[in-house]
Write a protein that binds this DNA or RNA. Structure first.
Length: 266
DNA sequence: ATGCCATGGACTCCATGA
């Protein structure tokens, strides 16, 4: 089975590219982030025509997560236990955002995750990001304790560069989110809970990234960040025979600013 | 070569992204 994650930066703007890659890449399951649409607006037909079922969680133009699969989708879960809520506006009650969607695809528990950005260090959104990651760790730890043999994939845009090697310039990101010690600690706490980076052994650094800003020729100059990961439980990690950051998909006409990240299971 | 912000939605600009 080939399983991937991809921050698509609007599925409506990119559905043809995404479905085309699913077919060319022989991808069985894709976790998507930043679909930027409501459930009603999600373009399901191109996926169905290509043989993929899709489940989606999106409320408006912000966030949005989905899972497409051609090997079945069961036990769909919107959000995880204890997922923190958020509201920007005093007149709008805080609610869980469209940032986490779980489903079982051919025996693998797949989570499509879009970790909050954090905006600026110390801001309410940054605090929310850390709380969100802590709650995810607690939920994931519980899933694994309930079934140590579970094959669980935590796949998505983590909005964290775990080490200095994962950004094109430490100086450039000094004082920014994505690289701070608390964010890295929150990420490593999930790794410590036995969810390991399944792709890194096949895509060693330095200068290996999954995201490049649209501006300043960042992609041609390979000035990016490694922030998209598939973390896997021990039983899933044992099945991995290949991993890859599909840099080709950041090229060409109207790409997402993220590349897909892919694993192959025996 | 891979090429110099994109997206969606409210409103002729703005929030968001990282």
């Amino acid at each position: 089975m080939r399983l991937a994650t991809w921050n698509v930066n609007s599925i409506r703007a990119r559905v043809d590219r995404v479905v085309d890659w699913l077919e060319r890449g022989n991808v069985d399951v894709l976790a998507m982030q930043e679909t930027k649409c409501s459930d009603e607006q999600f373009p399901v037909m191109p996926f169905l025509a290509a043989g993929y079922e899709v489940v989606h969680c999106g409320f408006n133009q912000w966030n949005g997560v989905a899972i497409a699969s051609r090997v079945g989708i069961a036990d769909v879960q919107v959000g995880f236990e204890g997922q923190p809520t958020w509201s920007d506006k005093p007149d709008v009650e805080a609610a869980a955002e469209a940032r986490a969607l779980g489903a079982t695809c051919d025996g693998v528990r797949v989570w499509s995750l879009y970790v909050p950005n954090g905006r600026t260090v110390g801001s309410p959104h940054y605090v929310y990001k850390l709380e969100w990651l802590a709650a995810l760790r607690n939920a994931a730890e519980k899933w694994l304790s309930e079934d140590p043999s579970a094959q669980i994939a935590l796949a998505g845009d983590w909005n964290i560069a775990p080490t200095d090697e994962d950004v094109w310039s430490v100086e450039f990101y000094q004082g920014s989110t994505h690289v701070t010690e608390p964010e890295r600690a929150a990420f490593n706490a999930i790794v410590d809970a036995q969810f390991t980076d399944l792709v890194r052994p096949f895509a060693p650094g330095p200068q290996v990234y999954t995201y490049w800003d649209y501006t300043q020729l960042r992609f041609p100059k390979n000035r990016g960040m490694r922030i998209d990961f598939i973390l896997g439980s021990p039983a899933l990690a044992a099945r991995v025979v290949h991993g890859e950051i599909v840099r080709e998909e950041r090229k060409g006409k109207a790409p997402s600013d993220h590349a897909p990240v892919l694993i192959e299971l025996a």
